[in-house]
Lab assay of single mutants.
Amino acid sequence: QPKKFCDYCKCWIADNRPSVEFHERGKNHKENVAKR
Rank of each mutant, 00 (worst) to 15 (best):
Cys6Trp: 00
Asn32Trp: 10
Ile13Leu: 07
Ala34Ser: 14
Gln1Leu: 01
Glu24Arg: 03
Asp15Arg: 05
Lys30Pro: 06
Lys3Gly: 11
Lys4Arg: 04
Asn28Gly: 14
Cys6Lys: 07
Trp12Val: 06
Lys27Cys: 05
His23Ser: 02
Arg25Phe: 08
Cys11Arg: 11
Pro2Tyr: 08
Lys10Phe: 04
Asn32Tyr: 06
Cys11Ser: 14
Gly26Pro: 02
Cys6Asp: 00
Asn32Gly: 11
Lys30Arg: 13
Val20Ile: 06
Val33Met: 11
Phe22Arg: 11
Ser19Tyr: 03
Arg36Leu: 15
Cys11Ile: 12
Lys27Thr: 08
Glu21Val: 06
Asp7Leu: 07
Lys4Leu: 04
Val20Cys: 02
Arg36Met: 06
Cys9Ala: 01
Phe5Glu: 04
Pro2Ala: 13
Phe22Thr: 15
Pro18Asn: 08
Phe22Ile: 05
Glu21Ser: 08
Arg36Glu: 15
Lys27Gln: 12
Val20Arg: 07
Lys3Met: 14
Lys30Thr: 15
Val20Glu: 09
Lys10Gln: 09
Cys11Trp: 02
Lys27Pro: 07
Asn32Ile: 03
Pro18Ala: 10
Ser19Ala: 11
Asp7Arg: 05
Val33Ala: 12
His29Arg: 01
Arg25Gln: 13
Tyr8Arg: 09
Asn32Gln: 13
Val33Gln: 08
Cys6Met: 01
Pro18Ser: 08
Trp12Ser: 06
Trp12Gln: 14
Arg17Lys: 10
Arg25Pro: 04
Val20Trp: 08
Glu31His: 06
Val20Tyr: 01
Asp15Gly: 10
Arg17Thr: 12
Cys9Thr: 01
Cys9Val: 00
Gln1Cys: 00
Gln1Glu: 00
Ala14Gln: 06
Arg17Cys: 14
Ala14Ser: 05
Asp15Thr: 11
Ala14Val: 04
Asn16Thr: 15
Phe22Gln: 15
Lys30Tyr: 04
Asp15Ser: 07
Lys10Ile: 04
Pro2Ser: 14
Asn16Phe: 09
Lys27Leu: 10
Ile13Met: 15
Lys10Gly: 09
Lys27Glu: 13
Cys6Arg: 01
His29Asp: 00
Asp15Cys: 03
Arg17Pro: 15
Asn32Asp: 03
Lys3Val: 06
Arg36Lys: 14
Asp7Pro: 02
Cys9Glu: 01
Lys35Gly: 12
His29Asn: 03
Asn32Thr: 09
Glu24Gly: 04
Glu24Val: 01
Glu21Ile: 01
His23Met: 02
Glu31Leu: 07
Asn32His: 08
Phe5Gly: 01
Ser19Leu: 03
Glu31Val: 10
Trp12Asp: 07
Glu24Trp: 04
Glu21Pro: 03
Lys30Trp: 05
Asp15Pro: 08
Arg25Ile: 06
Gln1Arg: 00
Arg17His: 09
Cys6Glu: 02
Ile13Asp: 08
His29Phe: 00
Glu24Ala: 05
Cys6Ala: 03
Asp7Ala: 08
Asp15Asn: 06
His29Trp: 03
Ile13Gly: 03
Pro18Asp: 04
Asn28Cys: 10
Glu24Lys: 08
Lys35Cys: 00
Val33Thr: 07
Asn32Val: 05
Val33Gly: 07
Lys30Cys: 13
Arg17Glu: 12
Ser19Glu: 06
Asp7Gly: 08
Arg36Trp: 06
Ser19Gln: 07
Asn28Tyr: 10
His23Cys: 02
Lys10Ser: 09
Lys35Arg: 12
Gly26Ala: 11
Lys35Leu: 07
Arg17Asn: 12
Pro18Gly: 08
Glu24Asp: 04
Arg36Thr: 11
Ser19Arg: 02
Lys4Met: 14
Trp12His: 15
Asn16Ile: 15
Arg25Asn: 07
Lys27Ala: 13
Ser19Phe: 01
Lys4Ile: 07
Ser19Trp: 01
Glu21Leu: 08
Phe22Glu: 14
Gly26Glu: 15
Phe5Arg: 03
Glu24Pro: 00
Arg25Glu: 11
Gln1Tyr: 04
Lys10Thr: 05
Val20Asp: 02
Lys10Asp: 14
Asp15Phe: 07
Trp12Gly: 05
His29Pro: 00
Val33Cys: 10
Asn32Pro: 03
Arg25Val: 12
His29Gln: 01
Glu31Arg: 10
Glu31Pro: 05
Arg36Ser: 12
Cys11Thr: 14
Pro18Met: 12
Lys4Cys: 03
Gln1Lys: 00
Pro18Cys: 10
Asp15Ala: 09
Cys11Met: 14
Glu21Gly: 07
Trp12Thr: 11
Trp12Phe: 08
Lys35Asn: 10
Ser19Thr: 11
Cys11Pro: 03
Ala34Thr: 13
Lys4Asp: 02
Asn16Gly: 15
Lys35Val: 09
Lys10His: 12
Pro18Lys: 08
Lys27Gly: 10
Lys3Pro: 09
Ile13Cys: 04
Tyr8Leu: 06
Asn32Cys: 09
Asp7Ser: 09
Phe22Ala: 14
Lys30Glu: 13
Pro2Ile: 13
Trp12Glu: 07
Asn16Pro: 13
Phe22Ser: 12
Lys3Phe: 00
His29Gly: 01
Val20Met: 12
His23Arg: 01
Val20Gly: 06
His23Gln: 02
Val33Lys: 06
Pro18Tyr: 08
Phe22Asn: 12
Ser19Ile: 01
Asn32Arg: 10
Asn28Asp: 09
Arg17Ser: 13
Glu21Tyr: 00
Asp7Thr: 15
His23Phe: 01
Ala34Pro: 05
Phe5Cys: 02
His29Cys: 03
Pro18His: 09
Arg17Asp: 14
Gln1Ala: 00
Gly26Gln: 13
Lys30Phe: 05
Ala14Arg: 04
Val33Ser: 09
His29Leu: 04
Ala14Thr: 11
His29Lys: 02
Lys4Asn: 07
Glu24Tyr: 08
Ser19Met: 11
Phe22Asp: 14
Ala14Leu: 02
Phe22Met: 15
Lys4Pro: 00
Lys35Ala: 15
Ile13Gln: 02
Glu21Trp: 05
Tyr8Val: 06
Ala34Gln: 06
Tyr8Cys: 06
Arg25Trp: 05
Lys27Ser: 09
His23Glu: 02
Lys4Ser: 07
Lys3Ala: 08
Arg25Tyr: 04
Arg36Gln: 05
Arg36Ala: 13
His29Thr: 01
Gly26His: 14
Cys9Tyr: 02
Lys10Arg: 10
Cys9Asp: 02
Lys4Val: 03
Arg25Ser: 11
His23Leu: 00
Lys27Val: 09
Arg17Gly: 12
Val20Ser: 05
His23Asn: 00
Asn16Trp: 06
Tyr8Ser: 03
Pro2Met: 15
Phe22Gly: 14
Cys6Ser: 01
Asp7Trp: 01
Pro18Ile: 04
Ala34Trp: 07
Cys9Pro: 02
Pro18Phe: 04
Ile13Pro: 03
Lys35Trp: 13
Lys10Glu: 09
Cys11Ala: 13
Ser19His: 06
Asn32Leu: 08
Ile13His: 04
Asn16Arg: 09
Glu31Ser: 05
Gly26Asp: 13
Arg17Val: 13
Asp7Gln: 10
Gly26Val: 08
Trp12Leu: 10
Lys35Ser: 12
Cys6Pro: 03
Lys27Tyr: 01
His23Trp: 01
Lys27Met: 10
Ser19Asp: 09
Arg25Gly: 13
Gln1His: 06
Gln1Ser: 01
Ala34Phe: 04
